[in-house]
Computed example of a mutant assay.
Amino acid sequence: MDKHEEFRKSVRQIRRLFVLLFTVFGLISGGVLYLMMDPDLSIFKKTSSDPTFVVIPEEDEDRIENGIHVRTGLKDAEGLMVVVYNCTNCHSAKLVTQNRMNKERWAATIDWMQETQNLWDLGSNEEVIINYLVTNYPPREKGRRERLINIAWYDLEQ
């Protein structure tokens, strides 16, 4: 590399440094000017004089309404929070409730998740989770429709 190329490279590096410094200086001075104009940061506080500024109230994520855990839609019963903390970390509660299984199937499903999906060891929580699910979301006797019987089948002509 000759001296001209080295000089151009140095100029490019200095130019990048000035752009970076100018950007940082601009951001800092803009923040300082903003704080000078609004030192108590009132823009972030709800005031009755500003009807366009809406504060969304903090919601208790573990609130129960009408026997239902609001965030997940799960039934409020013994073991609910163990299920919420262990099952809804990885997937929706809807996935849990739509897979209505008996005790043995839930145990096998948990084993499968531990072997293939990196589910942690649940320890004594496994029994609590299975009991909650079997009690509150037991297998259904019927599927979506009755089994078709006494049907007169026919061949379609093409």
Rank of each mutant, 00 (worst) to 15 (best):
D111M: 10
R71N: 11
D62F: 07
I64L: 09
N125E: 13
E5M: 07
K46H: 08
V24Y: 04
D38L: 09
G67S: 05
N150Q: 10
E146N: 14
L119V: 08
E141V: 10
M1W: 05
R71M: 13
P57E: 04
T72A: 08
E61W: 11
I129T: 01
L41E: 08
K94D: 13
V96H: 00
R12E: 14
K3S: 09
N131I: 05
L21D: 02
I149M: 06
D40F: 02
V54P: 00
Q158D: 13
G31A: 12
E127L: 04
E78T: 14
S42L: 12
G73Q: 08
T52V: 04
L119G: 04
N89V: 15
D76E: 14
E115C: 05
V84R: 02
E58M: 14
V134S: 03
S124L: 11
N99M: 15
S48T: 06
T97W: 03
I64K: 03
P51D: 03
H91G: 01
G123F: 05
N86Q: 13
M1P: 01
G30M: 09
Q13C: 11
T109P: 00
D121G: 04
R16Y: 09
G67Y: 07
I130C: 03
D2M: 04
E61F: 10
V11A: 12
W106F: 08
V84Y: 02
S29R: 08
R16K: 14
I43C: 07
R71Y: 05
N136F: 10
Y154R: 10
I130H: 00
D60W: 05
E146M: 10
D2Q: 06
F53I: 08
N66Y: 06
M1G: 14
S92V: 09
I151Q: 13
R16N: 12
P51K: 07
V134R: 01
A77V: 04
E127R: 07
N89I: 15
P57K: 11
K45D: 06
L21E: 09
Y137H: 06
F25S: 15
S29P: 01
T135D: 15
F22Q: 06
M37V: 13
I110C: 01
H91V: 05
P57R: 06
Y132W: 08
P138M: 09
H4N: 12
K103I: 03
S48E: 14
N136G: 10
R71P: 02
W120Q: 06
I149L: 10
I14R: 09
I110Q: 00
Q117N: 10
I151T: 09
L17H: 08
I110N: 01
V96I: 15
